[in-house]
Nucleic acid binder design. Structure first.
Length: 414
DNA sequence: TCTGGGGTCCTAGGACCC
DNA sequence: TCTGGGGTCCTAGGACCC
């Protein structure tokens, strides 16, 4: 058996751990650049705030209900996530951390226990140790655990278990679009075939699912039948790409500013590359205008590096070349980014005849990374990345990095 | 005025090879 | 007049996830 443990409206819960005055109050967390709602407390949900709406469209609602608004604070969420995950690791020898707020726990071999009771125990301990409320869905496959987790969230006591005896009863009115792996497009197309519930999808012809959709749909159907097709990923598969992209606080029209942004993102991407001890052999650079305007425009170029590298200066040469190629003076860019591709472990990369001796440049990168780690991101940077960065994203309502930054830790008054 | 970011996987189709 | 068959690799685009 498998348990899916999912944090309840994780970002708002994390904020409330350090702002308990907002417990039972409507709270929302915004996307980068303070653009859209990405998380909402149950109270915010109850007054009709939807995930994904642009915040400027709900200003009235926010004012009227005194909704507490936070910019996103990923240092805090990342750290709180780690605390939850290490707590969960106490309850099983094998777990897959699936996302920032979810883990699959392997409960095979726990057959002697009452799994529902065990679920309650997990919930209680996570709550006590981290302050984060979680829901737990238990079943025989990942897909069914996801279904069970949905039911747990509705059930109020936070734990639910699907077994061969009760599964059908729950699938019969479980909407097909809520199944893990069924998105907007598939649910629309399934509806056209008269398939609206999880039970109907479970009983579909296997080869039809394969032919009409893909092997993923076929596996999903099998999983609904209780046959595991998606196994637990115990050691995370190696990364294949690293993206850094942001929307700008205001549109960018000059090449100089676009170069600053691209250089900033490239530096950050190269930093991530080194953290993972990888090198890249290509970089894609892209820029977009507002996708809500009629003359929406986007362009990208992919450049192959001379040799596989993790050196910021080397990767920057290509990134800026790409930037110059996609820049158009008549456009107002709203967003840009870079993607590092062709990643491989640094220790296994193909060396090149033309590559400079690695000692000195590696030492330079290590030093820069160490300084930035100690004194804060961007303490030392390449000059092309710009100093003022007037285009940098908005984050006007960010809470403190309570748990990851010495100068921002909570203060206890006597 | 204001609309997120970072990923993976699958498929189809073209280029290319012998 | 008649113009193969089998395969791999790469890429773009779509769909999905949190």
């Amino acid at each position: 058996m498998l348990a899916l443990c999912d944090c309840n409206s994780f970002y708002t819960s994390a904020e409330r751990v350090f702002a308990p005055q907002f417990i039972n109050q409507p709270v929302i967390v915004l996307s980068n650049n303070d653009g859209c709602v990405v998380a909402r407390s149950p109270e915010a949900k109850a007054i009709g705030i939807k995930i994904g709406v642009p915040v400027f469209q709900i200003q009235d609602l926010i004012y009227q209900h005194k909704v507490q608004v936070f910019s996103s604070n990923y240092s805090l969420y990342g750290d709180m996530s780690q605390r939850v995950m290490s707590t969960l690791a106490e309850f099983t020898p094998t777990l897959e951390v699936y996302s920032i707020d979810e883990s699959f726990l392997d409960l095979s071999g726990f057959g002697h226990l009452d799994l529902i009771e065990y679920g309650h125990e997990i919930r209680q301990v996570v709550r006590q140790w981290t302050g984060i409320p979680v829901s737990i869905g238990i079943s025989s496959t990942k897909t069914l655990s996801k279904v069970a987790n949905h039911l747990a969230k509705l059930s109020d006591d936070g734990v639910s278990l699907l077994n061969p005896e009760n599964t059908e009863k729950f699938l019969v009115d479980f909407p097909v679009e809520e199944i893990w792996g069924i998105g907007r497009s598939h649910s629309r197309s399934l509806a056209n075939h008269g398939i609206n519930t999880a039970l109907q999808l479970r009983d579909v012809d296997l080869s039809w699912a394969r032919k009409e959709y893909s092997v993923l749909m076929q596996r999903l159907v099998l999983e609904l039948r209780g046959q595991p097709c998606f196994s637990l990923e115990l050691n995370p598969p190696p990364k294949k790409s690293i993206t850094v992209s942001r929307s700008f606080s205001r549109a960018i029209a000059t090449l100089a500013e676009l170069r600053e942004a691209i250089a900033t993102y490239t530096s950050r991407a190269a930093e991530k590359l080194r953290q993972h001890e990888l090198t890249a052999d290509a970089i894609q650079v892209f820029a977009l205008t507002s996708r809500f305007k009629a003359d929406y425009y986007s362009d990208s170029v992919t450049l192959t590096l001379d040799y596989s590298s993790d050196n910021t200066a080397e990767i920057l040469r290509f990134a800026l070349k790409g930037c110059d190629r996609i820049y158009r003076p008549e456009l107002q860019f709203k967003k840009a980014g870079v993607i590092l591709l062709g990643l491989m472990p640094k220790s296994q990369r193909q060396l090149s005849l033309w590559e400079p001796e690695e000692g000195r440049s590696d030492a330079l990168m290590q030093t820069i990374d160490a300084i930035n780690e100690r004194f804060g991101r961007g303490t030392i940077q390449f000059a092309v990345a710009g100093l003022e960065k007037p285009w940098a994203m908005r984050q006007e309502m960010r809470s403190n990095r309570w748990t990851t930054c010495w100068s921002e830790i909570p203060v206890v008054r006597s």
